[in-house]
Computed example of a mutant assay.
Amino acid sequence: MTKLEELTALLVNEINDFNNGIEKLEKINEQLKETKIKMEISEYKSIIESHQQQMEFHKKTLEGFEKRFSNKINQAKIYPAWAVVVFIICVVTSVGLVSYMFLK
């Protein structure tokens, strides 16, 4: 019989501790409902806006570089114009000299 009394006393103590824990949690929950947390985001907004401006600047810079690079590629030639003119003059002169030597 003493063991049964000890077990019931232990169960009663555990139930009381459990009820006390629930009451504490309810108090904490009520305090959380009453407490309102406000975030100050104006500082973050200014940081984000400055970052966006920097990203726009870098984007415009890269687009300008891409346009210049595309123009350079489109204007690129295998041989410069002066080299082509000199080559044509040399070929015409050589053909003229060879034909002059054979016809003379």
Rank of each mutant, 00 (worst) to 15 (best):
F87L: 15
I89P: 01
E66Y: 02
F102K: 12
L103W: 03
H51S: 14
K59R: 11
Q31F: 05
L97W: 01
I15R: 11
Q54T: 07
K104V: 07
S99V: 00
I28L: 13
A76F: 03
I89R: 05
Q53N: 13
R68T: 09
E5H: 08
E63G: 06
V85Y: 14
S99G: 00
K60L: 03
N71W: 05
I22A: 10
C90P: 05
R68H: 13
Y100Q: 11
F18I: 03
K45A: 06
F18A: 11
T8Y: 10
E63H: 07
I22C: 07
G21D: 15
M101R: 13
V95P: 04
E40W: 01
K33M: 03
A9H: 00
E43Q: 12
T2F: 12
Q53C: 02
T8A: 06
D17L: 12
K60S: 07
I48P: 01
F65T: 10
K60E: 15
F65K: 15
I37V: 08
A81N: 12
C90R: 08
H58R: 13
K24H: 04
N16G: 03
N20G: 05
E40I: 03
V12W: 09
N74I: 02
V92R: 00
I78K: 09
T35R: 07
Y100S: 09
S46I: 02
K24A: 08
Q54S: 12
N13V: 03
I47N: 08
M39K: 14
N16V: 01
E66R: 13
L4I: 00
N29S: 10
V91D: 06
V91Y: 01
F87W: 13
V86M: 11
M101I: 09
E56Y: 09
V12Y: 08
K3G: 10
F57K: 15
G96L: 03
T8R: 09
I78R: 07
N20V: 05
L103C: 01
V98M: 07
L11H: 06
E40Q: 02
N16A: 12
V86A: 14
I28Q: 14
S94A: 15
M39Q: 14
E43P: 00
A76R: 01
E30V: 03
S42N: 12
K38Y: 13
L32T: 03
T93K: 04
S70A: 15
A9F: 04
L10I: 09
E56R: 06
F87Q: 13
L4D: 13
F57V: 11
H51R: 13
V95D: 11
I22R: 08
I47A: 06
F18H: 13
R68G: 11
L7R: 02
V91M: 07
S70W: 03
H51I: 02
V84R: 05
N29M: 05
M1Y: 12
I15N: 11
P80Q: 14
N74V: 00
K45T: 04
M55P: 03
L103S: 08
P80Y: 11
M1Q: 12
I37F: 10
C90Y: 12
Y79E: 15
I37W: 09
N16R: 10
S94L: 15
N29T: 01
G96R: 00
F87N: 12
S50Y: 04
C90A: 15
M101V: 08
I78Y: 02
K33W: 06
V12A: 14
E49H: 00
T2V: 10
F57N: 15
Q54E: 15
E34Y: 00
